[in-house]
Amino acid sequence: MLELDEKFFSRFGAEYSPNEIIFCEYEPGYEFYFIQKGRVRIVKIINDMEKTIDVLGPGDVFGEMAILEEQPRSATAIAMDSVRVLKFHRDNFDALLQGNPQLAYKLLLIFSKRIYDAKRRLMILLLEEPNVKVMDVLIMLAEQNQQFDFESEITLNTTVRQVASWAGMAESEAQKELTHLARLDKIELYEDRIVVKNIRDFQRIVASRRKNLYSS
């Protein structure tokens, strides 16, 4: 979390009230944001439905693609509660980095993580069968928690909706696949979590499918 003084905030600070749009998908964007207080929902309108891609909190950065590129916003950012952010224009970026090298480091961390997540997601999407996709999402979620022992049962705090969104499929389809796995006793499906009985099993299946994918 960045410690910045009040003077800094008065220059770069901005506040949003609950449910207020901070920026909208397809709007040109020149600024990026550091959350100081509150939560921000990142959403996209897909097939006329608002889908939440991410929920960010204090210390998180969003809109960072605007730093180096001239592209319209790729998603909409909406304040969930009273939100306080630091808002930096790309033109100030160099000055900002010079004055706040710890911010530069933080940005590197964020980009590293984003690249990995995006790549991992792409690997899931490239799988062909929906059931394998769903398995790979569960693997990915398991990988995100360093504490997990892959040799035993794993409890993932996730929902059908989240799995569907990672797998790039409709919620109903993800539900069908997850239910099928539950029926086979491979997982237990709850409202707010999924228990995977044997994640190694899924890893083997996904790895072999991925191999076939490339060789064909």
Partner: peptide, 20 residues
């Protein structure tokens, strides 16, 4: 990198390209 912000800028550019 705290001493040399230019490295960061360069890396960010590479990362940003990859991400895109």
């Amino acid at each position: 990198i705290l001493r040399n912000v230019n490295i960061v800028r360069k890396m960010l550019r590479v990362f940003s390209n990859q991400l895109r």
